[in-house]
């Protein structure tokens, strides 16, 4: 009897039709996702999420969630997938499954104009570097420059920008596209500039940003990969891409 109950339970779970999908998003990472004054979510991640849902033919609910708790909340079934510029890394793969990448852009440092800080261990000695906590950028700076700089870790990228403007930090390390559009090209970021090389080392930065799902949801995984291929092929991706960026951020 109990075997039978268990069997029915398992079969209903695996046969789940994805007509409704709840998508975890961040909302503090312009231009990928941010909250407008009236409370609506906008950005590249948000548009991609909507396009993918339309492709799958599901109704989607967007659930904003702070970065710190974004994976635990997925595992706690508060939503079914995360579309929030999450880099595909080995550490995260231990907990969640990833779709194929939906974009890949390099990381880069920014400094205050006129500060003359050089990107090297000696040039950055004693400087304060701001990163978003537990991102690929955090892992990179901790491993590569952790012994020569002071690292300040923020819950959101927006808070890091706030302290950069206030003069509490000397350098920012973040995704180059996100930082360019979300900070450097804005009024408050006008006093800052890029410095140093593009960082793409897969050891730290993974293969790009993917959609994270629970490991058991194999069907959803398949649907997501197909949907990414489909919007790449049918021009939807390009339309969204061109709305925000003047280069193709999908990468190679």
């Amino acid at each position: 009897m109990s075997m039978l109950v268990l069997f029915t339970l398992v079969s209903t779970v695996s046969a789940k039709e994805w007509k409704k999908i709840r998508v975890g998003v961040e909302g503090a990472y312009p231009p990928f996702s941010s909250v407008q004054a009236d409370g609506t979510l906008v950005g590249f991640d948000i548009d991609i999420a909507k396009a993918i849902c339309a492709e799958i033919g599901a109704t989607c609910t967007l659930v904003p969630q702070d970065w710190d708790g974004i994976i635990p909340a997925l595992l706690a079934r508060k939503y079914d997938c995360i579309i929030a510029s999450m880099s595909i890394t080995e550490e995260r793969k231990k907990k969640v499954a990833f779709s194929k990448k939906y974009y890949n852009t390099p990381a880069k440092f920014a400094r205050k104009k006129g500060s003359g800080i050089a990107i090297s261990k000696s040039g950055m000695k004693g400087k304060v570097v701001a990163v978003q906590r537990a991102t690929t950028h955090d892992n990179f700076i901790t491993a590569e420059f952790g012994d020569s700089v002071t690292i300040k870790r923020y819950g959101t990228q927006d808070e890091a920008y706030l302290d950069a403007v206030a003069g509490r930090v000397d350098l920012l390390l973040a995704d180059s596209i996100a930082m360019d559009d979300g900070f450097l090209k804005t009024d408050k970021g006008s006093g800052w500039e890029f410095v140093g090389p593009n960082y793409t080392d897969p050891k730290y930065f993974g293969e790009g940003a993917g959609i994270a799902m629970r490991k058991g949801d194999k069907k959803l995984h398949q649907l997501m990969n197909n949907a990414i291929d489909a919007i790449r092929a049918n021009g939807t991706y390009k339309r969204i891409n061109d709305k925000y960026f003047n280069i193709d951020i999908y990468g190679n």
């Binding site: 710190d68 635990p72 595992l75 550490e91 906590r133 537990a134 300040k152 870790r153 302290d163």
Partner: peptide, 22 residues
């Protein structure tokens, strides 16, 4: 711990967000 200070709670937040073990 909310304003970048690594106090006891700040330390817990770092461990949580790095290894996803709230």
């Amino acid at each position: 711990g909310v304003i970048t200070i690594v106090d006891l709670f700040g330390a817990a937040k770092i461990v949580n967000s790095r290894y996803f073990v709230p």
